[in-house]
């Protein structure tokens, strides 16, 4: 029943998926970029600076989604002790950290022409910085604690505590007065972003998600080989 989850079967799948993504990635990237930079209209208020949204928003989504994944995987690891989950968590970590940082930096670049400042310690931005700190804590605990069991235990506790930060980030713009505007795309109800700008946004999101999948799979493969190498030594 769990055949799919054996490393050797996953390994064959990874190869196939990587070559599939490689074959479509650049076409999608070019389409996405041309929509984001040329074909989409400027905003009525922000003019062309709104184009920063096409990298800022997907990056922030990926940063948040990665952490949510890591937290739930950590919970399942803590309860079921499936070793494979740790490999998956380790492979998601760098992606999450990278995109959260990208979201913060591009947001700061976006803030200068629109808000008039690079930085504001409002609730949204502060909670994003806290998310980066949680990512760094997780990576540090995986790298610095040599006892593997201990490292996994500690990092899963950090991830669970960090999970509380996620709804705070999401709703910070509604609960408190912030400089950051509320979300344009809502889970329920109509979004307040025009379709001619929503389409490129979703396209860029798809491109970045595929990129994430590529990085994730390569990293996951590396982790599997690391484990196999260890087994080889035991021979």
């Amino acid at each position: 029943m769990f055949n799919v989850f054996y490393n050797s079967n996953i390994f064959a799948w990874i190869e196939k998926i990587i070559s599939f993504i490689n074959s479509i990635f650049f076409v999608l990237l070019i389409i996405g970029l041309s929509f984001a930079l040329i074909l989409s209209p400027p905003d009525y208020l922000q003019g062309d600076s709104v184009r920063i949204m096409y990298v800022h928003v997907p990056a922030a989504w990926i940063g948040l989604a990665s952490f949510t994944c890591i937290a739930f995987l950590s919970i399942s690891y803590f309860i079921f002790k499936i070793k494979n989950l740790i490999l998956i968590i380790k492979s998601i970590l760098p992606i999450g950290l990278m995109f959260t940082c990208i979201a913060i930096v591009t947001g700061s670049i976006w803030g200068q022409p629109t808000w008039g400042t690079f930085w504001a310690w409002d609730a949204r931005i502060t909670s994003m910085v806290i998310l980066v700190l949680f990512y760094i804590l997780l990576i540090a605990s995986q790298k610095l604690i040599l006892d593997e069991d201990k490292a996994n235990k500690i990092s899963s506790i950090i991830a669970v505590v960090g999970l509380i930060n996620i709804p705070i980030i999401k709703y910070s713009v509604e609960w408190w007065n912030t400089l950051h505007q509320p979300a344009s795309i809502k889970i329920t109800g109509t979004s307040t972003i025009h379709s001619s700008m929503l389409m490129p946004l979703l396209l860029m999101f798809l491109v970045l998600i595929l990129y994430c999948a590529l990085i994730f799979l390569m990293k996951y493969k590396t982790e599997i080989i690391r484990i196999k190498k260890k087994n080889l030594k035991r021979l």
Partner: peptide, 15 residues
């Protein structure tokens, strides 16, 4: 110091 706070509505100028 004055900062601008914009809302969450994005649309093309023609609209």
């Amino acid at each position: 110091r004055i900062l601008a706070k914009h809302d969450e509505n994005y649309m093309p100028p023609e609209l």
